[in-house]
Nucleic acid binder design. Structure first.
Lengths: 210, 210
DNA sequence: TAGATTGTTAATCGATTAACAATC
DNA sequence: TAGATTGTTAATCGATTAACAATC
């Protein structure tokens, strides 16, 4: 293995740090510390300093971190100091909610197209986008240089959609369908599944755990 | 610490196992193995057997696991062999998407009320539920014996809503707002934040990582 | 019986944290 | 200077996995 490889669990915490830094910057704060970041997130300050140390030295002893500076550095590290074009598959309620959520935009991602296979939905306007036929997938992907797709279709269709996306050249997928996708190893997949959290909480809410 | 305490990371995998078992049962399968479950989820078979061993012995050597039996056992362990009543705060696009998603229902959770603070939305019908004034929170929680709430309001309102929920007696929260909630330690909180996954993937999509 | 698969132990691997020198 | 906080090392802690006896 690459001796410089950074643990994925570290990479996964960087967006959390970035989220807090964005918030601090919005609040007009100029300085922060690993202590403050950790308290906000429920993480130890040591862990935050250790995580950051994989990438460089961003703070000043006795002073802490410049909020904007650290934010910009994290954006660079995560490659969200530029814009990623996304396609969204599925124009149902969930798809619409995703389209109206500003967070993607603010986080560095632009949804440039929404596609569906339902003739009823194709052609409808949602915000600034018109729902396109999923058959147009290859053209849309090529046209916008899309590398990341978002799946918001029923579980029963997700695998098929995912394969079409991969065939069209996408190499990362964020899926809301509660099903494990079976795809080539080099395709990155992230799952959003609210049931995991709910069922985990249910376990801890049972009498023996409270 | 309790020497019998089971690592949370183990608890968090059980819903994944349950999801696959539900699927296998729907497909009419009667037997499975740790190998098959692991292959489906991208987890080692050893880890699955080890995880299950915290709770008992559910399989037969040489044969594997009965799909329905293991599914029922996991439901019992996770306490989703019964129904949990949820309240949903926020009747925007996301709230509506959550209400129409069957997965909660199938996973053991029933959304029994939806509340909002927007006079425009209060009184509207969404599916079987009428949007109620968030001021009614305490009564609604008491009436339905709600222990778990789902937050689908903008980030700027999430902390306030969370505090109201805790005051009304809720002790677990699933939140879609991209903000870390500051709440008493005994309150369980689960976060759904699509940006974490997207930004993690962006990191790995950069030229040096592909 | 032979083959398959579980449940479990012990070893390995990897992540977190305590401690502290450096230094602003 | 005194106080605060970083960056880093080494120790600790915890999770994963390899190996295998048990047994269906």
């Amino acid at each position: 293995m690459n001796p410089l490889a950074i643990p994925e669990i570290v990479i996964r915490r960087l967006p959390l740090y970035l989220r807090v830094l964005n918030r601090l910057a919005d609040d007009g704060r100029t300085l922060t510390s690993s202590q403050e970041l950790g308290d906000t997130l429920g993480i130890s300050s040591t862990q935050i300093r250790k995580d950051l140390s994989y990438f460089g030295e961003f703070g000043k002893q006795g002073t802490g971190y410049g909020v904007r500076y650290l934010r910009d550095q994290l954006r660079q590290i995560l490659q969200v100091d530029r814009r990623w074009n996304l396609v969204l598959i599925g124009a149902g309620d969930l798809g619409r909610a995703i389209l109206r959520y500003n967070g993607f935009q603010e986080g560095g991602f632009s949804i440039v197209a929404v596609l569906d296979n339902d003739q009823e939905k194709i052609g409808r306007q949602i915000g600034k986008l018109k729902v396109q036929d999923v058959a147009k997938l290859p053209e849309v992907i090529a046209e916008h240089g899309v590398q990341i797709a978002v799946i918001a279709v029923p579980a029963s269709e997700a695998q098929e959609v995912a394969e079409a996306l991969v065939n069209a050249g996408v190499n990362a997928i964020l899926t809301y369908a509660p099903i494990t996708l079976s795809l080539p190893d080099h395709i990155r997949v992230e799952y959003i599944d609210p049931l995991i959290g709910l069922q985990t909480m249910a376990y801890y809410l049972s009498p023996g755990h409270l």
